[in-house]
């Protein structure tokens, strides 16, 4: 797997590399302009033919969105995660539909849940799971789900509302871990 990373490094600029939790899982970070070239190289020359997932992470502290492209090679039985960072204020990127057709549905999902638009994806504005959503995309971290839920679906009047149930659960698990 290190050889592979070295080969990538010899061609492209790799900003950061790290080993995942398994031997056959590596994570590399590349510049966002070179992503298509990297994916194309990996697909054509290194047998990473399968795009398993496109996911998005909201780094609100750094004002960035992270897009991760998780690739799998059937021959080598290796996972490679290629990640890029895009600006949070201007959430736009180009689609990878020409390389991996299955990216269509993932990009639609990210468009709906994070508001990142993918230029060149024809179906990205269709509904994925939410129908008629009008608010800010719900998976962004500055979206207050509790407040939204209370306003839209009505307040449930019970003790659970008043107590912070998440804190109770995390306290409990902390205590359990300390033992």
């Amino acid at each position: 797997m290190e050889d592979l990373i070295k080969r990538i490094e010899s061609i492209f600029k790799v900003l950061k590399k790290e080993r995942g939790k398994r031997d056959n899982l590596w994570i590399i970070e590349v510049e966002k302009d070179s992503l298509h070239a990297v994916l194309s190289y990996l697909k054509d020359n290194e047998s990473f033919k399968h795009l398993a997932l496109v996911s998005c992470v909201d780094w609100i502290e750094n004002n960035k969105f992270q897009l991760s492209y998780i690739l799998w090679s059937y021959q080598k039985r290796q996972n490679l995660i290629v990640k890029i960072f895009i600006d949070r204020d201007k959430p736009e990127f180009k689609t990878v539909l020409n390389l991996f057709p299955q990216a269509e549905i993932y990009e639609r999902e990210i468009r709906e849940l994070y508001g990142v638009s993918f230029e060149g994806n024809p179906t990205q504005n269709e509904d994925f799971v939410l129908e008629d959503w009008e608010e800010m995309p719900p998976m962004r971290r500055d979206f207050d789900t509790l407040k939204y839920s209370q306003e839209k679906y009505g307040d449930r009047d019970s003790e659970v509302q008043k107590t912070n149930i998440r804190k109770i659960i995390s306290d409990f698990t902390d205590e359990w871990r300390r033992k």
Binding site: T145, L146, Y148, S149, G154, R156, V160, Q161
Partner: peptide, 17 residues
């Protein structure tokens, strides 16, 4: 009353309504 999804953005809390 919404159960464990009481603060979810997409789960109806009170179906009775």
């Amino acid at each position: 009353n919404g159960g464990m999804y009481y603060d979810s953005y997409n789960t109806v809390n009170l179906v009775e309504l």
